[in-house]
């Protein structure tokens, strides 16, 4: 049996020499994106805690459902907004599997013919 634990043989530098470039908390735009999603998640939790126990119906649907739908709408807005922002800021072209770019739109909806 060929069992590899190559990390035991690897030359790993001490933590003091580790590059600080790739951190969990990104810088600049990335930090804003992280902050937005953490904020709306915490907001959802707080609103569920404060108002989730109230038996209120709005247009026939419980308040709990509306809270969650608004959380979903904020998430969709965040993803679409930040994705568009990222694309506008990005200089290099988008990486795509070769030979298929021209057929992308057609194949997006591809089903057996």
């Amino acid at each position: 049996m060929k069992w590899n634990e190559d990390w035991l043989k690897a030359n790993r530098p001490p933590a003091s020499q580790h590059p600080k470039r790739y951190t969990f908390w990104p810088r600049g735009r990335g930090r804003l994106i992280f902050g937005y999603f953490i904020f709306i998640t915490l907001l959802d939790y707080v609103v569920l805690t404060l108002f989730g126990g109230r038996p209120i119906l709005i247009a026939g649907m419980p308040l709990l459902i509306w809270i969650t739908v608004i959380f979903a709408a904020l998430t969709i807005a965040g993803i679409l907004g930040f994705d568009a922002w990222n694309k506008n800021q990005a200089a290099p072209p988008v990486a795509t599997t070769p030979q298929t770019e021209d057929n992308e739109l057609r194949n997006d909806h591809e089903l057996p013919s």
């Binding site: 999603f37 569920l48 809270i67 959380f71 979903a72 998430t75």
Partner: peptide, 13 residues
Amino acid sequence: VVTALTGIIVSTA
């Protein structure tokens, strides 16, 4: 249903 949807929302992000 809120549990299921909350999980899906977080998972989407």
